[in-house]
């Protein structure tokens, strides 16, 4: 769905294609797993021993320095320029590839999420998506920004207009990526 809206809103084709590619790969993976599961019922290997590891840890210092250097250098490139695009795309692709692999160690299973908790958090994110969609549809056109009905991207434009803003965003973006990959 996000890919469809990306294309409808006139974004560059590659963004939508990335989302479609990930969705396609996940569908293909789910299908192959179903085939594997049905073929291996008789000769199933013993289940892997699940070890536990502590919660998300801070990245090692060299990685922090590299991340900050990356943010400063890439933030100094013009927005949507080829050097910035290649650098951010490289990090994003590497992160998705790492997420694709099964983690070698797993955390102990989290407590199950209650129904009321799932509904509460889903409501927040669906509300945010619908509010953003409303702002998008209230623009003069899907490809024309509106001051009266700004989307989150439009609100971010003022932050990302300066190299400092882009570098700060990149530091936060990289930090969030690290936390996600550590889960």
């Amino acid at each position: 769905m996000a890919g469809v809206f990306d294309l409808l809103s006139g974004d560059f084709l590659i963004h939508g294609i990335v989302l479609f590619a990930v969705a396609g790969a996940l569908l293909w993976d789910a299908r192959s797993q179903r085939v594997r599961t049905s073929a291996e019922v008789v000769d199933a290997p013993p289940p892997a021993v699940e070890t536990t590891r502590p919660g998300p840890s801070l990245p090692p210092s060299p990685l922090v320095i590299a991340g900050v250097a990356f943010a400063i250098v890439v933030g100094s490139f013009a927005r949507y320029s080829w050097p910035a695009s290649l650098a951010v795309f490289g990090v994003a692709a590497a992160a998705v590839a790492i997420a694709w692999r099964e983690p070698r160690t797993r955390r102990s299973p989290p407590e199950p999420v209650t129904r009321v908790g799932a509904i509460a958090w889903t409501t927040v994110f669906v509300s945010l998506a619908l509010w953003e969609l409303t702002a998008l549809l209230l623009q003069p056109s899907l490809t024309t920004d509106s001051y009266a009905h700004p989307t989150i991207s439009v609100l971010m434009d003022s932050v990302l207009a300066s190299p400092i803003g882009r570098s700060a965003f990149l530091v936060v973006w990289l930090a969030v990526g690290w936390v996600l990959l550590e889960r």
Partner: peptide, 16 residues
């Protein structure tokens, strides 16, 4: 992969 792809898309959408 879905969550990390969402994070990756945010970076691509805003900068790439």
């Amino acid at each position: 992969v879905g969550v990390v792809a969402g994070w990756a898309w945010l970076g691509l959408h805003l900068l790439v």
